[in-house]
Design a protein around this nucleic acid. Structure first.
Lengths: 135, 135
DNA sequence: CTTATAAATGTTATATTATTACATAGTGTT
DNA sequence: AACACTATGTAATAATATAACATTTATAAG
């Protein structure tokens, strides 16, 4: 089999892999300095090393930034690999964050045009409410 | 006439008014420390004074925070006074931000239910693209 | 395989954004 | 006046993020 071209395109460097692994196994969004603290034993010592990996991972769609929380979660939605169309639900009590994948929603937003007929190349949507447990 | 109860509820304190006026007359979103710099001549000296006013103004819906930019703009949409349903377009070149008021969009999002049937009390949507001038 | 180029890393310092903690003053009831 | 609530003032510090520069590693073209 070997490594296909598309796999190679998304292959991660050492730091990127370390940081992605940490985020990917976390049940909750992680903040940059929480990540830094957790990867120091792996040799990543400085904030910039973390931020650079985060930037790249966001760029290639492996993780998303939850803007209202300054935190990062792994993408669990193959359809947003390009990181251009993201939607999340956030519980205001327990802070649980879930990525929403709704074909209807993404179709509606991808096609949304404003009054000037402007179409957008990207969007991020954050819903807030109470999750099942906290209701 | 006098001041009605509902007006009074939303009447602003001195610092809140100073900061709201500044944001309201700005053509672009303002950052907290830009605000601080610009109101120092009015006697507001410390970051916390700015952040407290911003928190309150967001809470009562007079301004909104653009989460992806850590900046604040005045609300220009009477229907989101409660600050529970916000949508913006952001130009990725000139950084111009416009509040979107689309009945269709707000209706669609207000009624959106996820797979668990969860309904949300609040949302924030940020669209990214190029504005007329930058296209 | 070597050279050119781009991508990633390492490191220090610093900039930017936001909050904690505590003391004081004003505002609106009852 | 007494009470509760909201807002203010001030200093210190925490949390988030980037600039600048040197070096190394990976990738692709010749």
């Amino acid at each position: 089999m070997g490594i296909s071209k598309i796999d190679k395109m998304h292959s991660l460097s050492k730091n990127q892999q370390i940081i992605f692994d940490l985020i990917n196994k976390s049940p909750e969004p992680l903040k940059a300095y929480t990540i830094l603290f957790n990867v120091q034993k792996k040799g990543i010592k400085a904030p910039l090393q973390v931020y650079r990996a985060l930037d790249k991972l966001v760029e290639i769609g492996k993780i998303h930034k939850i803007e209202s929380r300054n935190a990062f979660i792994a993408c669990h939605n193959s359809s947003c690999q390009v990181a251009k169309a993201t939607a999340f639900s956030i519980c205001e009590i327990c802070e649980k964050v879930t990525e929403i994948s709704s074909a209807g929603l993404s179709k509606y937003l991808a096609n949304f045009k404003d009054k000037d007929g402007m179409k957008y190349s990207k969007y991020n949507l954050e819903f807030f409410g109470l999750c099942k447990k906290c209701r």
